[in-house]
Design a protein around this nucleic acid. Structure first.
Lengths: 212, 212
DNA sequence: GTCTATACTCTGATAGAC
DNA sequence: GTCTATCAGAGTATAGAC
């Protein structure tokens, strides 16, 4: 059904085109709802050729998920290394995450659905995700301890932050774009967590002085 | 693969059991990843018997989605009819929504994924969803006009609220429960939107005096 | 309303020529 | 690395007996 998409013309290797088109089809039809034939039709090759690049359909999902998780973990680590306090670090991380969701050509909407996340072959990815969640929770805990953030259940706050990121994935594709969504989202979340909301502008200024 | 679940024993009609088990399988395996055989195995009937209750697999998803949307629209309308101002109405609606997500036995995680939401047969549901979104946006706009809420892009704020609701669906199933999550979520969102966060306790008190 | 039997399509993956 | 050919299994849905 899907015919080759324009982006799949030249500059992408066949392997990368498979990842790109698979991410988009997974997002709109689900993992099991996307056949290897669908992916190959979108790339412009025949179905068995896929197996010159990937062992199985699952290994495509695995690579997409690992790529996304690794980029996120690295970004969060960078922001923490730069310091500035929990509020600034969280603001900068969120700003990066939403920007990345919007600009990246891959469609990541399906990756965090149970259908993919709970594939038996992906337990190493689930470990990465668990690690990531704990990093975020530690950051929030640090902000609470310093008195910068309100004292709420840390797991609940982390999940709320996850929700905003996932919503950005959803919104980045099919819906009308929002002006400066990364700053809006980072500001709203930071404002929700700050004990003293009047500090938001200060946090934003310090974040921007540290660069994107 | 799925064997009859305990809940499917007696008190549920076969038709309701199909809806219940389908919602759970759609959530974990995706819509196209769930076969009519899977659903029937979970209910305890043979695959062709499903077609005595539903015309097609799509019509099961349609009924699940319409049921969820209708309950949400009705709840929001109730809260608006009770009045109290945008902040109180939003707080009460969110509290209802999260409570419902947690207590309802149906697993609604898959219903708002593109795989189901964009089925060609479901355009009447997409109309309902559009209507619902506009109701929520009007409520937010009212709060901004009254000076209660911060002045941000209304579509962005509405999407953020959607994200929290959807996260509640995800969290209500597989993750560790959070104490009084409905009040936490409603409070956090309301606090994020309030121009003057010190009014949160007042909003909560007025909301609780109006009942759940 | 549930069953068995079945039609016919699509699925992921492999074999082997080029 | 891509192709054609092919397999064995699973997919939705229908027919018709009880």
């Amino acid at each position: 059904m899907p015919s080759p998409s324009p982006e799949t013309a030249q500059v992408w290797s066949t392997r990368d085109s498979i990842l790109l088109e698979a991410s988009r089809l997974f997002a709109t039809r689900g993992f099991r709802g996307t056949s290897t034939r669908d992916i190959c039709a979108a790339v412009g090759i025949r179905q068995p050729s896929l197996y010159s690049h990937f062992d199985s359909k699952q290994s495509i999902a695995e690579e997409l998920l690992r790529r996304d998780l690794t980029l996120g973990i690295d970004a969060l680590a960078r922001m923490q290394a730069d310091g500035g306090g929990a509020a600034v670090e969280l603001y900068r991380y969120l700003r990066w995450e939403i920007t990345y969701d919007i600009e990246d050509p891959f469609d990541k909407r399906a990756l965090y659905n149970a259908e993919i996340l709970e594939l038996p072959e992906l337990d190493s990815c689930r470990d990465l995700l668990e690690n990531f969640s704990q990093q975020l929770e530690a950051l929030i805990r640090r902000g609470i301890a310093a008195g910068d953030f309100i004292d709420m259940d840390v797991v609940f706050l982390r999940r709320t932050i996850d929700a905003i990121s996932i919503e950005a994935m959803r919104g980045s594709v099919d819906e009308t774009p929002i002006i400066d969504q990364p700053d809006l989202a980072a500001s709203l979340v930071t404002r929700a967590l700050l004990s003293d909301t009047s500090q938001l502008n200060d946090v934003r200024q310090r974040a921007h002085s540290l660069g994107l």
